[in-house]
């Protein structure tokens, strides 16, 4: 039985960890190597690290920092940010990253997905898609600097990335990021209708109690930032993760 994965998503910004609200107003969380060590000791299901500056600054991954992070990480580690070639992904695997996440690179050229999958296999490739809720609750793709920015047919794009060889999809609701006010269940359902690969949803998770509804709607894993790095209304930084028994009680035995 496959257990539901609950995944802290950590954002790299200027070499440190931050947490955003609607992808903006970054709050300093801490030193990435130290945070990863703590999460690894707490036996998290998986860690996602996203360098939110790389593509915007037109640069590649900070391999030295990622290698230092990976050396402290004895849980599955996925990295995204600035990946533009198969060579990048090979280098990331070698330094200890199991899964690579592409977003901007794929939105610019969906062929990048097939190139990476042909060498590394789909099982180590996640493709990320960010959505913004517009008027009337309609969603469009958030991918600044790419031809897909503001595209409404995000379902069509999902099919494309799946056909190209994505092994997993990370679906984020930008409009709910950092809000802790609950998930955008409707997009989870719509995505699950077309996906045959695992789906990770992130955005708006306010507590473990939000997770079962996301899973029932078809996600295989849930990512969250705020609940694992902040405590209380004042958002005091406290790195935390529930133990396995609490997770099982909250989420049930899995699928």
């Amino acid at each position: 039985m496959l257990l539901t994965r609950v995944i802290p998503i950590l954002l790299l910004h200027k070499g440190a960890l931050y947490k955003t609200i609607e992808f903006q107003n970054p709050t300093y969380v801490g030193d990435p190597i130290n945070a990863v060590r703590i999460f690894s000791d707490k036996a998290v299901d998986e860690l996602v690290i996203l360098d939110v500056d790389a593509s915007a600054e037109g640069r590649g991954p900070d391999f030295a920092l990622i290698e230092a992070i990976a050396s402290e990480c004895f849980v599955p580690l996925a990295y995204g940010g600035g990946i533009a070639s198969v060579a990048d992904t090979r280098r990331l695997h070698r330094i200890g990253v199991e899964k690579v996440i592409v977003k901007t690179g794929a939105a610019r050229n969906v062929g990048l997905i097939s190139e990476i999958a042909a060498v590394g296999g789909s099982q180590s490739l996640t493709v990320s898609i960010d959505l913004i809720r517009g008027r009337f609750g309609r969603y469009r793709i958030h991918a600044p600097g790419t031809p897909l920015h503001r595209e409404m047919d995000w379902i069509g794009y999902l099919k494309k990335i799946q056909d190209a060889g994505a092994g997993e999809v990370l679906l984020q609701s930008v409009s709910d990021d950092g809000s802790r006010s609950g998930a955008a269940i409707d997009i989870v359902r719509q995505a699950n209708d077309v996906l045959r690969v695992p789906l990770v949803y992130a955005g708006g998770v306010g507590s473990l109690n939000d997770i079962p509804a996301i899973i029932e709607s078809g996600a295989n894993a849930v990512g969250a930032g705020s609940i694992f790095v902040f405590r209380g209304k004042r958002r005091a930084v406290l790195i935390n993760y529930p133990d396995h028994e609490l997770l099982e009680r909250s989420l049930g035995p899995g699928t």
Binding site: M1, L2, L3, T4, E46, S122, Q123, R196, V197, P198
Partner: peptide, 13 residues
């Protein structure tokens, strides 16, 4: 892939 999500990805006993 008609029966289960592929890849098999995550924690299992």
């Amino acid at each position: 892939a008609d029966a289960v999500k592929v890849p098999h990805m995550g924690w299992n006993g």
